Amino acid sequence: MKKLGFFNKIIFFFNTLFAVLLLLSYILPYVFPKQFPLISVLSLTVPVFIAVNIGFMLYWLVQLKRQFMLSLIILLIGYKHVGAMYRLSGSSESEEDGIKLMTYNVRIFNAYGWLKDNDVPEKIVELIDREAPDVLCVQEFYYTQKDAFNKNYPYQFIKYTTRNNRTGQAVFSKYPIVERGSLEFPKTGNNALYVDIVKGKDTVRIYNLHLESLHIVPSKEHISDENPEMLFKRMGNAFALQHRQVEIFDEHRQGSKHKMIIAGDFNNTPFSYVYKRVRGTMKDSFIEQGSGFGRSYDFDYFPMRIDFILSDPDMEILSHKNYSELLSDHYPVMAKIRFGKTPEKKGE
């Protein structure tokens, strides 16, 4: 510090502060939201802490100052967090045999006109038809589109969860569905659907999971106008509800005798207890084959990844794709998955 000027000493002070905050954030996936809901909200800030520490590291490197080691060491300690936020390279397309699964929160097909375009429902259907997933998991499905996918998806399961039977979740499949059901979460319109699909000799369970919403309007203007204390408290309550929903889900999946894929809108980040518990030992398609930030939610402040596709450890993620078409407050996510790993060649 003796060789640092006054300005750089101030910079290093803030560098140290953000390095400590990032280090402490590494324990957030182990904090129970039911017991510490407000602390759990801080998991949303982890991408900011990572980005700021990268900025400090580059600042010192340009000046050839050894202080860059502070942020570098903290980032290396949490390399899994960094990898969950950004991937350098991956595969968005694959010609190998597997199923293509898409998850998409369609925000009830713009029924209340959040987007100015009048043809949003048609554009969503066109996008799905063009990308042609074999299995489609939809959150916030709207009853007006119940026949939109009949042509390409002979096997369907739609469950309306609101009192007026207009909104809910849905799974559309090109492969036969031999078992289906819904996990009802208390005091909410959110739930989890499950279907067992048959492809060849394989039967695989697919969950379409929609956890409690944080009810954040994704714009700087709205967030800056809202009372910070009320916003923070509401998000903490939502995280606590998510914890209970994940417990219900976790208990149910223990009874499945099939390999499984979990897809959906978790309304939480990869740095949270909720994600950690749902994922367990499963593979995250973005971490396996994604690239860039993997943004799945339209949020002004930073790229948020809250929509996931997770697969059984014995499955192989062949590709992962994030889309940029803004037809909802979420972006669709698709992965191609092979049910069994590629056999290793002799001598390898």
Results as ranks from 00 to 15, higher is better:
Lys116Tyr: 07
His252Lys: 14
Ile309Lys: 06
Met334Asp: 00
Leu72Gly: 07
Phe36Pro: 00
Ile197Tyr: 10
Lys201Pro: 02
Ile99Asp: 02
Ala132Trp: 03
Tyr112Thr: 15
Leu115Cys: 11
Asn15Ala: 01
Leu310Asp: 03
Phe32Lys: 12
Asn150Leu: 06
Leu75Arg: 03
Lys146Ile: 13
Phe14Asn: 00
Phe302Cys: 14
Val138His: 04
Met315Pro: 10
Tyr59Cys: 05
Gly236Trp: 01
Thr342Asn: 13
Lys346Phe: 12
Gly280Ala: 10
Phe271Ile: 12
Ile124Gln: 14
Asp119Leu: 10
Asp250Ile: 01
Tyr104Lys: 04
Asp329Tyr: 13
Asn53Glu: 00
Tyr160Phe: 15
Pro332Asp: 02
Asp307Val: 04
Val178Phe: 09
Leu326Gly: 03
Tyr26Val: 05
Ser224Phe: 15
Asp250Glu: 14
Lys80Leu: 07
Val20Cys: 04
Val48Thr: 14
Phe18Cys: 04
Ser328Arg: 10
Asp196His: 11
Arg234Trp: 08
Ile216Gly: 09
Arg244Phe: 07
Met69Glu: 00
Tyr275Asn: 13
Ser89Glu: 12
His243Tyr: 13
Asn164Leu: 06
Thr162Pro: 02
Leu115His: 13
Ser173Glu: 13
Gln63Tyr: 06
Asn164Tyr: 06
Leu183Ser: 05
Phe13Gln: 00
Ala170Met: 05
Leu64Lys: 14
Asp202Leu: 11
Tyr59Arg: 02
Asp265Gly: 03
Arg244Gly: 00
Thr162Tyr: 04
Arg338Pro: 10
Ile177Ser: 12
Gly90Phe: 02
Val204Asp: 07
Lys3Thr: 15
Ile54Arg: 00
Pro228Thr: 06
Thr16Arg: 01
Val48His: 08
Gln139Asn: 08
Asn110Arg: 09
Leu209Trp: 05
Gly189Arg: 11
Gly98His: 06
Ile10Ala: 05
Pro133Val: 02
Ile223Cys: 02
Thr188Phe: 05
Pro218Tyr: 12
Leu127Thr: 03
Ile317His: 07
Tyr30Ser: 09
Gly280Pro: 08
Lys257Asn: 14
Arg107Trp: 13
Leu21Gly: 08
Asp284Pro: 13
Arg130Ala: 06
Tyr59His: 09
Glu95Gly: 14
Phe6His: 00
Leu44Gly: 11
Gln242Ala: 03
Arg107Cys: 09
Met57Ser: 08
Phe109Arg: 08
Asn150Gly: 01
Tyr86Thr: 09
Gln67Pro: 00
Phe157Tyr: 15
